[in-house]
């Protein structure tokens, strides 16, 4: 057993315990830790963005372009910077509409580059993986593939809004919602596992790094 002599470990342990004190009751120490966390993370992000984005991608290239009298390089940095700065017009009531321009540019750019890959990744590949190309009654894999196809088809039926859920469609959709619920159950179970893991991670920190009780 060897208790940590590192001041930062003690601070981290103190904050961990403060946050967990919420489980007993909301209290001022918890609120303190929560605000400290929000403040610290925002501050850290600003520092990172200031040094790694603003300096590295705006100020330094502009400086370099001016020193080298590189007109094209200067324009290539300046134009996107101005478009980006337009976001700040949101602070003005009368000029707020200007912010729509950078939003339009960003949306246009991302829509353009993402349509093809997302159709290929999320539709074609997924449909391809669901299609039953062969069936061998003796193999378990074939039955799983069939179950998958049934699950996808019936779930799609459930999310049809143009047809009344009655008769055949209604019954199929009902099977579909069973698949959806089982999927949610699996996801719920996984979430519980994840939350427990986070707790374990913190307790490992307290017992190993801080108190040195466990190896």
């Amino acid at each position: 057993m060897s208790i940590s002599t590192n001041l930062w470990v003690w601070l981290a342990a103190f904050l961990t315990l403060t946050i967990y004190s919420f489980l007993y009751k909301d209290n001022i120490m918890y609120k303190f830790a929560e605000h400290l966390f929000v403040g610290a993370s925002v501050g850290w992000s600003i520092a990172i963005i200031w040094h790694l984005t603003v300096f590295q991608y705006i100020i330094d290239p502009i400086k370099e372009a001016v020193l080298n009298k590189d007109v094209l390089g200067f324009i290539l940095v300046l134009v996107p910077t101005i478009i980006g700065l337009m976001y700040f017009s949101r602070f003005s009531r009368s000029k707020g509409w200007i912010a729509r321009w950078p939003i339009a540019v960003t949306m246009g750019y991302y829509t353009g580059i993402s349509i093809t890959p997302s159709i290929e990744t999320n539709i074609f590949k997924q449909v391809e993986g669901t299609i039953l190309t062969s069936f061998n009654p003796g193999s378990l894999g074939s039955w799983w593939a069939l179950l998958l196809l049934v699950g996808v088809v019936t779930t799609l039926f459930y999310f049809f809004f143009s047809v009344k859920h009655a008769g055949f469609v209604g019954r199929t959709a009902k099977v579909g919602i069973w698949f959806v619920m089982i999927a949610f159950g699996a996801s719920f179970g996984y979430t519980v596992m994840a939350r427990v893991s986070l707790l374990i991670g913190r307790i490992q920190f307290l017992l190993h790094d801080w108190l040195g009780i466990i190896k």
């Binding site: 449909v127 299609i131 039953l132 062969s134 196809l149 996808v152 088809v153 999310f159 809004f161």
Partner: peptide, 20 residues
């Protein structure tokens, strides 16, 4: 979107059927 889903459904079942 409903129409797109219908097409996907059709592809899934159609290609599966022909493949089998």
């Amino acid at each position: 979107q409903d129409l797109e889903k219908a097409v996907i459904l059709f592809l899934l079942l159609g290609i599966s059927l022909f493949s089998l």
